[in-house]
Nucleic acid binder design. Structure first.
Lengths: 237, 237
DNA sequence: GTGATGTAAAAGTCTGACTTTTTGAGCACA
DNA sequence: TGTGCTCAAAAAGTCAGACTTTTACATCAC
């Protein structure tokens, strides 16, 4: 799935980045560019470019005479898709998945409400098609096919909201949904109630009923949160 | 406000980045690293690092034998604080401000609801203090002082939500609020209704009443959106 | 103890040579 | 005419080494 030969830069980045987000280098750790270059067997130029990118993600800070300091997680650009991917691949995947699901629960209802007002005819049609696709694949262990429709559905809603900040969360939602299907226990067919809700959201959007689309999407989100509470430890407190 | 002597890399980045987000190089434009290096009078190494960072923001894509291609805005990492700053400083500031305000209207109510459940005693106290500070400075053209309290208030709510994705939006909210006070017409004292709502949100959080905190924050957000509708052209359609 | 001074460590910058990938032109062949 | 192959050039990618600049820290004088 993930390409292998995208150049040295990308390979080193994909090795060092996850190591940092996984906490292998605790905040405050100091690295040296030269040492890293040796460790990864690349030239200083390549390593400098990698450090610059990590710096732009606020994963590290580079200071003269000190070195490259790992920053505390509170400063990381947690909205950077690459950072999200690295963290989802790492150990605190469950916590990450929960954070993102909570974010979804805030954003998607509002996005659906806006979509009801802004969606084009094509988008409405596509949405309905996705919902029907979900219904069709919701039984009989066709999880992969269901997932495709589910992702497409939520992407369309976010796009149709007309808000670019919402639209850009499409990838995040895709990651969360895929994560749920692939990694977490998902032996059962999808919850029939959720499927129905998706159909009704598509309806509401088609009819331009913003408040209803919003309320229904809120129900979907709450369902996802409940599901997460069952599978993963809630806030662990 | 903005530092000047942070090294060549940062200076070139702060010159090229805004130029791209401002649309000076339309999507599909092809730049060459060497040419850019000449134009900005820096070495290729520096320019390469700049390009790598722009690439990590998905503002450009670099391909062999082709050059550095400017990507369409739909692919930009619009959650990157630096990109947000560049865009807010540019021409489509109004649109940007609207997108971010809509995002706030989705996120902050949910964050407030969570804060009511998770806020520590210290956070509750700080929140109340901010609200009182807002009351105290809400009359008599003390906009700057008011702004400080307003920003602190929203930051605390987002932090207290216990969700890192929400917490990281503190800077965005600060930018939006500051933008409203500084750039947009804001001759009047703050809306008294908004001030009262902040006080009541602080109360609700202190009392652990999530639903009320959420509802009240939703009112604040709706007020902000209304205000924006008056000052700036709505969705221009 | 306080403050000036010097030193060395690390990032920052520049240069030039070389490698690798990729595009598109030119050409052969059907 | 069109299809596919070869090849050369263009641009990014990589490397190595020298030099500059900043700055933390130790040392020394007072």
């Amino acid at each position: 799935m993930t390409a292998q030969a995208r150049g040295l830069h990308a390979r080193v980045l994909d090795s060092l980045g996850p190591a940092i987000t996984a906490g292998e280098y605790p905040p405050g750790s100091v690295l040296r560019t030269d040492e890293l270059a040796q460790r990864f067997e690349v030239s200083r130029s390549v390593m400098r470019e990698v450090v610059r990118v990590l710096e732009s993600m606020h994963l590290v800070a580079s200071r003269r005479r000190v070195g490259v300091t790992v920053l505390p997680a509170a400063q990381w650009n947690v909205y950077d898709p690459q950072v999200i991917r690295w963290r989802l691949a790492g150990a605190d995947r469950p916590r990450q998945l929960r954070s993102l699901t909570v974010l979804r629960s805030a954003v998607e209802p509002v996005a659906a409400g806006l979509a009801a007002r802004h969606a084009s005819a094509e988008q409405c049609a596509a949405l309905t098609e996705c919902a029907l696709g979900m219904v069709a694949t919701s039984r009989g262990r066709r999880l992969e096919e269901y997932l495709v429709h589910d992702i497409a559905f939520h992407r369309i809603v976010l796009d149709a909201s007309g808000n670019e900040m919402f639209a850009r969360l499409g990838d995040v939602v895709a990651e969360v949904l895929a994560g749920r299907t692939h990694h977490d226990v998902m032996f059962e067919d999808p919850d029939p109630a959720a499927v129905t809700l998706h159909v009704r959201v598509a309806e509401a959007v088609r009819e331009g009923d913003g408040p209803r689309a919003e309320a229904l999407t809120r129900e979907i989100a709450e369902g996802a949160l409940r599901e997460l509470d069952i599978l993963a430890p809630p806030p662990t407190r």
